[in-house]
């Protein structure tokens, strides 16, 4: 199946969404990205039982950090989808790209460019 999703989305593959690290999420904002989302398996379907639930909590942690720093917490989000849902993957990529377009460029990246 060949699906179109926005080319600005850079995919970083992990063996399980649970492997995502708070530090890596923060580092990407430090590097000036406009938004990050974590795509994990459906809740209840984690091969490692709770990886996707842990990923969600890490995303929520980073949302709080961003909020404390005066950055829109919506720049990071957790989505759940199964690997059989290719069209859903493309839809989320479009949905999140739209959201970030509305929020505009990251204030971190902007200050750096200035």
């Amino acid at each position: 199946m060949r699906l179109q999703y926005p080319t600005n989305v850079r995919v970083i593959q992990l063996p399980c969404s649970g492997r995502v690290d708070i530090l890596h999420l923060l580092r990407s904002f430090e590097d000036g990205v406009d938004g990050v989302y974590v795509a994990g398996c459906m809740e209840g379907d984690c091969h490692f039982l709770t990886g996707n639930l842990k990923a969600r909590r890490k995303v929520e942690y980073v949302q709080k950090v961003l909020e404390s720093l005066g950055i829109e917490p919506g720049r990071i989000e957790m989505y759940n989808m199964s690997s059989a849902q290719g069209p859903r993957f493309a839809e989320v990529a479009r949905e999140f790209t739209e959201r970030i377009k509305e929020l505009g460029p990251s204030p971190v990246g902007q200050a750096q460019a200035a």
Binding site: L23, R27, V108, A111, Q112
Partner: peptide, 22 residues
Amino acid sequence: EKEVGILASALRISRKKAGLPP
């Protein structure tokens, strides 16, 4: 060490956002 990394990263984000040397 892990929490040092997280706090330092958050502080750097804040400085970059304010246009200060990070």
